[in-house]
Lab assay of single mutants.
Amino acid sequence: TDVTFHVNGRNLHLKGADEELLRRIEELIRRGADIEELEKAVKEWEK
């Protein structure tokens, strides 16, 4: 799945995201995470 999140005026584009990653990103956004936290979560998922 390709999806782009718009967070605090910045874009986080995910290519090939699975349901697990999407749920994790949505949860972080609900908690008020900043873009750096979201990018870190994506990097951890990519490993």
Rank of each mutant, 00 (worst) to 15 (best):
N8V: 01
W45N: 05
L22V: 15
T1Y: 15
N8Q: 05
G9D: 05
L21C: 05
D2A: 01
E19I: 11
R31W: 12
G32R: 03
W45Q: 05
L28E: 04
A17S: 04
T4H: 15
W45C: 05
D18L: 02
R23W: 06
T1E: 10
L12Y: 05
E44W: 07
N8R: 03
R31Y: 10
E37H: 08
G16P: 01
K40C: 12
E37C: 07
K43P: 02
D2C: 15
V3E: 08
T4W: 06
I25K: 00
L12T: 00
V7Y: 05
K47S: 11
K40Q: 13
F5H: 15
W45S: 07
R30P: 01
D34Y: 06
T4E: 15
A33P: 02
D18V: 06
G32C: 03
D18K: 06
V42Q: 03
R23Q: 08
E36K: 05
K43I: 13
W45R: 05
K15I: 13
E37R: 09
H6N: 10
E19P: 14
E27Y: 10
A33K: 11
I25E: 00
K43N: 11
H13K: 06
H6W: 06
K47L: 11
K15T: 08
L28K: 06
G9C: 04
D34R: 06
K15F: 10
N8W: 01
D34M: 07
T1W: 14
E46K: 11
W45A: 05
R23V: 10
L22C: 05
G16K: 06
A33G: 04
G9Q: 02
K15Q: 08
E44P: 02
A33W: 10
R10Y: 11
L12I: 11
E39V: 12
E39D: 05
T4F: 06
L28A: 07
D18H: 09
L28Y: 05
K15W: 06
R31L: 13
G9E: 04
V7M: 02
L14I: 15
N11V: 15
R24Y: 14
N8E: 04
K15D: 04
L14F: 04
E37K: 08
D18W: 01
T4M: 08
I35N: 02
K47E: 11
W45K: 04
I35S: 01
V3A: 06
V42H: 03
G16D: 10
I29N: 01
W45D: 03
L38M: 07
E26T: 09
G32M: 04
I29H: 03
H6C: 15
R24V: 10
N11H: 15
E44Y: 08
R24G: 06
E27V: 07
I35T: 02
E26K: 13
E20V: 11
F5Y: 09
L14D: 00
A33Y: 12
A33T: 07
L22D: 00
V3L: 12
E20Y: 11
K43G: 11
E26L: 13
A17W: 05
L14Q: 00
D2L: 04
D18P: 14
E20L: 14
E20W: 11
R30E: 09
N11Y: 15
E39F: 08
K43F: 11
L21D: 01
E46M: 11
R24C: 09
E26Y: 09
R10L: 08
R31K: 13
H6V: 15
A41Y: 15
G16I: 06
E44R: 08
D34E: 12
D2V: 04
L22H: 03
T4Y: 07
L12E: 00
T4V: 14
L12G: 00
R10M: 14
E20F: 13
K43D: 12
A41M: 09
I35Y: 15
V7C: 12
G16A: 08
G9M: 02
L38N: 00
H6L: 13
E19C: 14
R31F: 11
A41N: 08
G9Y: 01
R10T: 14
V7T: 03
F5I: 15
E39L: 14
D2H: 03
A33S: 08
A41R: 07
G16F: 06
D2G: 03
D18N: 12
R10G: 14
E26I: 14
E27L: 10
R31V: 09
F5M: 14
R31Q: 14
R24T: 13
L22E: 02
D2K: 03
E26A: 12
G16E: 05
R24Q: 13
V7I: 07
A41I: 13
F5L: 15
R24K: 10
L22A: 03
L28S: 05
A17C: 15
N11G: 04
V42S: 03
H6G: 02
R24I: 10
E19W: 08
K43A: 14
K40E: 14
K47A: 10
A33F: 12
L28P: 00
L28G: 04
E39H: 07
W45G: 05
W45H: 12
A17H: 04
L12A: 00
R10S: 14
L14S: 00
L12S: 00
W45V: 05
D18E: 07
E37Q: 11
E37T: 09
L38A: 03
V3K: 13
L21P: 00
N11R: 06
R10H: 15
K40M: 14
H6F: 05
L21T: 08
K15M: 07
E20C: 12
R30V: 10
N8K: 05
N11D: 15
K15Y: 08
E46W: 06
E36A: 07
G9P: 00
E44G: 10
L12M: 05
E44M: 09
I35L: 08
L22N: 01
T1I: 15
G16V: 05
E20I: 11
E36N: 07
E27H: 08
R30N: 09
W45I: 04
K43W: 12
T1Q: 12
V42Y: 03
W45T: 04
V7N: 02
E20P: 11
R30T: 10
V3N: 04
E46C: 06
R31A: 12
H13L: 07
K43Y: 11
G16T: 06
N11F: 14
K43E: 13
V3M: 11
L38G: 00
G16H: 07
E20K: 12
R30K: 12
E27P: 01
E19L: 09
I25W: 01
H13E: 09
D34C: 08
N8G: 09
L38R: 00
E46L: 09
T4S: 14
A41S: 07
D2N: 04
I35M: 11
R31C: 10
A17Y: 06
I35F: 15
A41F: 14
E26G: 09
W45M: 05
D18I: 02
W45E: 03
V7D: 05
F5Q: 13
K15H: 12
H13Y: 09
W45F: 09
K40P: 01
G16C: 09
E36H: 07
I29Y: 05
K43S: 13
D2Y: 04
A17L: 04
E19S: 10
L38C: 10
E37I: 10
R30S: 13
E44I: 12
E19R: 10
E19V: 10
E46N: 12
A41E: 14
V42L: 07
L21G: 02
K43L: 12
L38W: 01
E19Q: 10
V42W: 03
E46D: 13
A41L: 10
V3Q: 04
G16R: 07
E36P: 12
R24H: 14
E39C: 09
L38T: 01
L21H: 01
V7H: 04
L38S: 01
E37Y: 07
I25P: 00
T1S: 12
L22Y: 04
R24E: 10
D18A: 11
L14G: 00
T1G: 10
E36F: 06
T4D: 15
E37M: 12
N8C: 10
K43R: 11
A41W: 08
A17Q: 03
H13M: 07
W45L: 04
R23N: 08
V42P: 00
N8I: 01
E19M: 11
K43Q: 11
D18Y: 01
L22T: 05
K40S: 13
D34W: 05
K15G: 03
G9K: 00
L38Q: 00
K15V: 12
I25D: 00
L14T: 01
G32T: 03
K40F: 13
L21R: 01
L28W: 04
E37G: 08
R23F: 08
V42N: 02
V3H: 15
L14V: 15
N11Q: 14
H13A: 05
N11I: 15
L22G: 01
A17T: 04
E26V: 14
L14E: 00
W45P: 03
R30G: 11
L28C: 04
D18S: 15
T1P: 09
F5A: 11
V3W: 11
F5C: 15
K47R: 12
N8L: 03
L14R: 00
R30A: 13
K15P: 04
R23K: 12
E44Q: 11
H13C: 07
L14W: 00
K47Q: 13
H6Y: 06
H6K: 05
E44C: 11
W45Y: 14
L38I: 06
L28H: 05
D34K: 07
I29D: 00
R23G: 08
E36G: 07
I35D: 02
L28D: 03
R30M: 11
K43M: 11
G32E: 04
E46Q: 10
E44D: 12
R24P: 00
R31P: 00
H13W: 03
K15N: 06
R31N: 13
T4C: 15
D18R: 04
R31H: 13
E19K: 12
I25F: 04
R31M: 13
G16Q: 07
I29A: 03
G9F: 01
D2W: 05
I29V: 06
N11K: 13
D34F: 07
G9N: 03
L12C: 01
L28R: 04
G9T: 02
A41V: 14
L21E: 01
E37N: 06
I35G: 02
D34I: 06
H6I: 15
K47D: 11
E46P: 13
E36Q: 06
E27F: 10
